[in-house]
Design a protein around this nucleic acid. Structure first.
Lengths: 163, 163
DNA sequence: TTCAATCCCATAAAAACCCATTGTATCCCG
DNA sequence: CGGGATACAATGGGTTTTTATGGGATTGAA
């Protein structure tokens, strides 16, 4: 498959008192080039203490991939159950939120809790999708490469906060 | 794979007060022959104290390679984590910057610090990618061949600066 | 009413854009 | 072969546009 437009780069944005966050312009650019939606899909990340985010076009693609996988491995009861589980996670456990004309979303409270997002949201492009972190949790995770933590620290410094 | 257009040659350009740098025309030529983007991707070099740079087409190619690797080795939890880490480094730890009609980029502050780039940027073609150095750091690195340092010194002399 | 989401407007900083200058290499023509 | 004329690269500076973000005002459902 391979998508031609990939999410890349990092940014640290504020979450204001109303729970609004600006989606960095360079990520919005990719979303709007992939499709014409001004919307992102949020989910808890599978392995890290952060949120995973992507555009509706990618969600559709992901769904198609699951369908194909099912058709291939079918007949096994295990496979069918696994499909049901994955499907639930892919759709029921996600939230789709539009961003407004200034590029901001209202972070849904449930996702905010799941991602433990506080006053600051660290956006990280990861190719097909991007991640949203509480920067402190990223710094605390031993599985994250040091070079990436340096970037998080730089983004925090840039803002004047001491990390 | 093998790309047909390769980066080669060297140039020393100024970084102005706004942080702008001209990408040498001979490198831009390669970028635009590889794809139609007028954009470069910047990353910290893995082994040297400089930046690594390439075009989006090369980045996509690298990504596709990673994807194929994952599908082959999948299922292992270790492999999955390693994949996540690589993806983060390849995308979150890089920045994509467009160059304008006069061939200049705005060097992102984070990359400028990571590469310790001051007022001068030394561009070195290395085939599939190219490097951007603080010329002084190149001269100070014992791992760099003397012949290459001579080239750096020549570029500095050309400019009137004493190396 | 009340809380919360959406819309609208304001602003400061940063980035993108446009235009001008210089220097150098190239070309053309006498 | 010399000497302009030309084209393009690199760079400086100003102006406009975009971004991120704050703060009302309005809508709407509970």
């Amino acid at each position: 498959m391979a998508l031609e437009h990939l999410f890349q780069g990092s940014a640290l944005n504020a979450v204001d008192a109303k729970g609004r966050v600006s989606i960095p312009a360079f990520l919005r650019g990719v979303i709007e080039r992939r499709g014409d939606a001004r919307t992102i899909v949020l989910a808890k990340h599978e392995t890290f203490a952060c949120l995973s985010a992507y555009d509706p076009a990618y969600a559709a693609l992901k769904h198609a991939k699951l369908e194909r996988l099912l058709e291939k491995e079918e007949t096994s009861p295990d496979a069918a159950l696994e499909y049901q589980q994955r499907n639930l996670m892919a759709f029921a456990a996600t939230e789709e939120v539009p961003y407004d004309s200034s590029g901001r979303i209202l972070m849904p409270p449930m996702m905010r809790r799941k991602g433990q997002i506080g006053e600051l949201a660290l956006f990280l492009g990861t190719g097909e999708t991007f991640q949203i972190w509480n920067p402190q949790l990223l710094l605390d995770d031993p599985r994250i490469p040091d070079d990436l933590k340096d970037i998080a620290r730089f983004r925090l410094d840039e803002r004047g906060g001491t990390a």
